[in-house]
Each structure stands twice: as structure tokens, then as C-alpha cells.
Amino acid sequence: MSIWKYANPAQFMRTTDGLLPWLVGAAAICCTAGVVWGFLTPDDFRQGSTVKIVFLHVPAAMMAINIWVMMLIASLIWIIRRHHVSALAAKAAAPIGAVMTLIALATGAIWGQPMWGTWWEWDPRLTSFLILFLFYVGYIALWSAVEDPDSAADLTGVLCLVGSVFALLSRYAVLFWNQGLHQGASLSVQSGERMSHVYRYPLYLAMLGFFLLFLALLLIRTRTEIRRRRLAALQAREMRA
């Protein structure tokens, strides 16, 4: 049996039905533990207690990008192999990605406030996330605007492909536009500087927690979409008959 059997809606529902409680539990535990542990870490000698924001900002930012990549892969699977669940999974993932981007943006802006003295700074990283957010919003808007599900899946798939190229392009354009005057303290954690164990392990745990949270939400939302589609399909069939 190939992995494609899970692309069958009924099979997907059966499999996730058993998997979901475990996933939800694991996500809840890891998320809570990671974030609480992060909140309890000692202050950084340079950044003071603001270092605690890392445990939200970094996992959210990581997921914001990863979810777009996942949507790109799901869209490609839909376009190439025509697996309907794949298209619905891409649709289900978008709002999660948008919220993750929003968290990354909000925590980034709040974190920067004491450093930069302003609530918003056109820092290349923050700007890139703002652009990514715009792409998420456009993607979600297109899904909701097109009534026919087959057309909507195809059109959003094409948009996701083109959007991926332009999101990447914008990232480099933004670097060119504002060469990161704020690479200092606020971003040291991400830029490969050696991080003390005190911060590293709770961060890993929070990352795992956010990833599991995404998976759990993705499965639930995909199941929602499948049920909605099934209802619409049954109604369409009755109308035709």
C-alpha cells in the first residue's frame, strides 16, 4: 500500500480519528511545558527579561515559514496528483500560518520596542514577515472568494506557486532595501551565536510544541474541510437527482 491511500477522504478520517487525541495531548503538553519553561528561564545579562519572548517568537516564526512550505508541497501534490485531501490540507493550513506569522510579527514588534524605542521598525526580518502575512491573506481571500471548489483549489495552487517565488524574491529585495541595521542583540539568538543551554532546551521544546500544535490544528481543520465538502457534495447530488 502506498502512502497515497491516506489521500482518500474516508481513509484519512479513519486514520486521524485515532491519531488525533494523542496528537492533541502531546501538543498541549509540549506547548505548555516549552512556553512555561521558557517563561521561567533566568534573565539574559544583555536583554534582561525580554529574552523570554524568544520562546514564542522563534517557534512562531519558524512555523510561519514552514507552514507556507507545507502549503506549497500540498499544492504541488494537488496539481500533479489531484489528491483532493491535499488541496484541502493546504486550505486548512493557511489560517494557522497566518496566525503564526501574526504572532511572530507581534512578538517581534513588542520585543523591539524597548530596543528601538518604537513599536514598529522596518527591520528586514519583520518586513519579510509582514509581506509573508500579506501572501497568507491573499491566499485565504482567494479560497473564500471562489465558489466552485475545483476551481478554487486550482487557482489557489497556482497562486501558492507564484506567491512562493515572490515571497522569496521579496525577502532578498527587502534585504537590499534595508540592510538590517538591527542585527544586534535582538537577533543574536537566531544568527548562530552560541546560546547557553539554559535557553536552548526550552526553545527546542517550544519549537516541538508549536510544531505539534500545528499538526493537531491542521488535522482538525482538514477534517472540518472534508466534512464541509462531503455535505456540499451530498447536497449537490440531491439537487442533481
Partner: peptide, 30 residues
Amino acid sequence: ALTVGLRRGGLLLSLLVLPLYIPTLIFGAE
């Protein structure tokens, strides 16, 4: 082309197209 079949595609069109304009805008204005 993405929004051609939609009745109220105008606003959505702006929402979809403007982010794609960002790199061009950055380099052009620069």
C-alpha cells in the same frame, strides 16, 4: 486571470497583485 470569473474581483485583485509588486517597487524606487 485569477479573479476573472468573480463578480466582485476588483478588491481581491488588488489584494493578490500588490504583494507581487513589492520587489519591483523596491528596486524601481531605489
